[in-house]
């Protein structure tokens, strides 16, 4: 297996006295499609916040390509190749769709000359064209000039992915990208994420839709109450007793297991 692109080493995070993440270690291999799953409140979004630098870990270390990134300010991380989307859509409501996407280019265009060159005054700048092309490829070409606040949920969810992608990241952290999408939209999203993955971008995806997880991801890490309870293939994740218990509770898990065994016997 290739070297990990991203790795967490015994990471813990407390808010006041509340332990939200406890001693979590895992690796995201270069080029993989890794799922980060777990029941609500397990700490998945918090892990994303730690990786992107919204919060600093209370203990432990996060490494990108073997280098610790804990000392890096949050705004420098996207430039190193870590881009993310947000569970509760965090687009800028007063910016148009294309402007939101152009904001994602900041890490590549934010030098002094880049900051002072008009991007929307005289026709279409190269940055604007790039953003529009990417929106086009995502099937969002009908919206570029519209202000984001008024658009439907599913569309905004996709725009967030495009905004993260336009940063040309090495690793894309997606927090429940399919939440609120219907079956067709989810299938489209899956194909789109596959294309992104094939272009060499590593994916770390938080997702509740297990069929999407199984068809997209090869590797899964499962959290429960801030601890890692599973780290392995997505094929066997649903047979794992600890995972079943986390999702279904002890008694239900017992039942599910006896059912499965009965099926095997039959």
């Amino acid at each position: 297996m290739s070297a990990p692109l991203l790795s967490l080493h015994a990471v813990s995070k407390n808010f006041g006295g509340l332990a939200v993440i406890t001693d979590v270690s895992f690796e995201v291999p270069q080029g993989s499609r890794t799922a980060l799953i777990g029941p609500n409140g397990a700490g998945k979004t918090t892990v994303f916040n730690l990786i992107s630098g919204v919060f600093a870990p209370s203990e432990g270390e996060i490494r990108l390509e073997g280098q610790s990134i804990d000392a890096l300010p949050s705004r420098s991380r996207i430039g190193l190749g870590v881009a993310r989307s947000f569970q509760n859509i965090r687009l800028m409501p007063h910016l148009s769709v294309v402007e939101n996407v152009m904001l994602g280019q900041q890490a590549r265009a934010g030098n002094l000359a880049g900051m002072l060159t008009p991007i929307s005054l005289f026709g279409r700048s190269k940055w604007r064209r790039e953003a529009e092309d990417l929106l086009d490829r995502m099937g969002l070409s009908t919206y570029p000039g519209e202000v984001v606040a008024t658009l439907p949920y599913g569309i905004r969810k996709k725009i967030e992915v495009v905004r993260a992608l336009v940063a040309k990241p090495k690793i894309l952290l997606l927090d429940e990208p399919a939440a609120g999408l219907n079956n067709t939209e989810t299938a489209n999203l899956r194909d789109f994420l596959m294309t992104i993955s094939q272009s060499g971008v590593t994916l770390l995806v938080v997702e509740h839709d297990m069929s999407l997880v199984r068809s997209l991801c090869d590797h899964a890490v499962v959290l429960n109450f801030g601890r890692k309870i599973y780290d392995g293939s997505t094929r066997t994740v649903q047979d794992d007793p600890a995972v079943l218990e986390a999702y279904l509770g002890t008694r239900q898990a017992e039942k599910a297991r006896t059912h499965a065994e009965a099926d095997h016997v039959a």
Binding site: S52, V54, S74, M92, L95, A107, M115
Partner: peptide
Amino acid sequence: YLMSTRFGLTMRATHDDEVVTDLMGVN
């Protein structure tokens, strides 16, 4: 002119959401 540059874009983004604007790489 200023509002049409990327600087203007980052000004407006900062107004809307400081945390996300920071994560996008804006100082």
